[in-house]
């Protein structure tokens, strides 16, 4: 996509960043950090959640988000992060309103629980309206509708994201012709274009890594562009490479450690030494496991970003720290 000269912050690269990941990996947190990073230098980004959890409001410490865009944070250099919680019934009503000018029928639909009906009987339709709303918020590049430099979506987890994004497939059996079918087609065009990129959040653990590998293959299979792998909660290793080798060979110098403890005025009983050495062996095993997972992730051939584990938990300050870590590693500068 060419740079857009009409917008001061306009630059090449994707504008729609879809963030997925296994549950518990910090998907919502990193989506928020990405939105902050993409709002740097006076730009505007929009962070969208689609699963009704109000996770964004919790992160930014603000009241629950309505079905409307709200500014939730300012970024470095006067940038702004806006947020939107997309509710599927509102999205469906909005769609019907725009296309069919519902009028009083809206009341009847609401009253009858008809919307619940439509979205439950054909769950695939939910996703058409959710992704449709996302594409609407994105707007056509360079048009008046494109009010944001970047749109970041806190998407469903890895197990469901391919289905969520593959709206064409979802409606294929249900509506062969008609407006919904056309809607799905145009959503698919945006999602498969260079405007879009899907990032996967993972940890250096076995299951999240496996799910990352699986989802990258799955997304590739349906022609959706995979962006970066975001490795979350990375701890800085305390042990050196030499320590790790010694630990691996179970050859830690007991006497040397005891001497160190004595020099620090700490107890040096056999039990204490056993306990500390056991903990070092555990830590070394973890590092070895992490190295293996890191190699597996690297073999995917996608750009990777590492985000530090924050001991004090995720608060607003932590979000800014994660955004800074993304920016420092070049996220959003040339398009990941």
């Amino acid at each position: 996509m060419p740079a857009d000269p009409a917008r001061p912050g306009g630059r090449p690269g994707p504008r729609l960043h879809v963030v997925t990941g296994k549950g518990g990996t910090g998907k919502t947190t990193l989506a928020a950090a990405a939105a902050l990073a993409l709002a740097a230098e006076g730009r505007r980004s929009l962070l969208i959640e689609v699963e009704g959890r109000q996770g964004i409001a919790q992160l930014f410490d603000c009241p629950p988000l309505p079905y409307a865009e709200r500014r939730v944070a300012v970024a470095e250099g006067g940038g702004e992060v806006h947020a939107l919680a997309v509710d599927v019934e509102d999205a469906l009503l909005e769609y019907l309103q725009t296309v069919y000018h519902l009028g009083p029928a809206r009341w009847a639909l609401d009253r009858l629980g008809a919307l619940d009906f439509v979205t439950s009987i054909a769950p695939g339709l939910r996703d058409v309206f959710l992704t449709g709303k996302i594409c609407q918020a994105l707007g056509a590049p360079g048009s008046d509708g494109a009010r944001y430099d970047a749109v970041v979506v806190d998407a469903p987890p890895t197990g469901r994201v391919a289905r969520f994004l593959n709206v064409n497939q979802q409606v294929a059996g249900l509506a062969r012709v008609g407006p919904v079918r056309n809607q799905a087609e145009s959503i698919m065009q945006v999602l498969r274009s260079a405007q879009t990129t899907v990032h996967v959040v993972t940890l250096l653990e076995e299951m999240p890594t496996q799910e990352t590998v699986d989802v990258v293959a799955e997304l590739g299979g349906i022609g959706l562009p995979v962006g970066a792998v975001l490795i979350n909660m990375v701890r800085t290793p305390v042990l050196t490479a030499a320590d790790l080798i010694q630990a691996q060979n179970r050859h830690l110098p007991r006497a040397e450690i005891a001497a160190g403890l004595a020099a620090a005025g700490l107890p040096t009983s056999a039990a204490i030494l056993d306990a500390l050495i056991g903990e070092v062996l555990d830590a070394a095993d973890r590092v070895a496991l992490e190295a293996a997972e890191r190699a597996t992730l690297a073999s995917l051939g996608r750009p990777t970003y590492e985000l530090p584990w924050l001991a004090e938990g995720i608060d607003l300050g932590g979000l800014y720290a994660l955004a800074a870590a993304l920016t420092d590693q070049g996220f959003g500068v040339s398009g990941p």
């Binding site: 305390v238 042990l239 050196t240 320590d243 110098p253 040397e256 450690i257 001497a259 160190g260 403890l261 020099a263 620090a264 700490l266 500390l276 050495i277 903990e279 070092v280 830590a283």
Partner: peptide, 8 residues
């Protein structure tokens, strides 16, 4: 080394 072990 003992210092690092204490940090672990």
């Amino acid at each position: 080394l003992a210092a690092r072990i204490l940090r672990v």
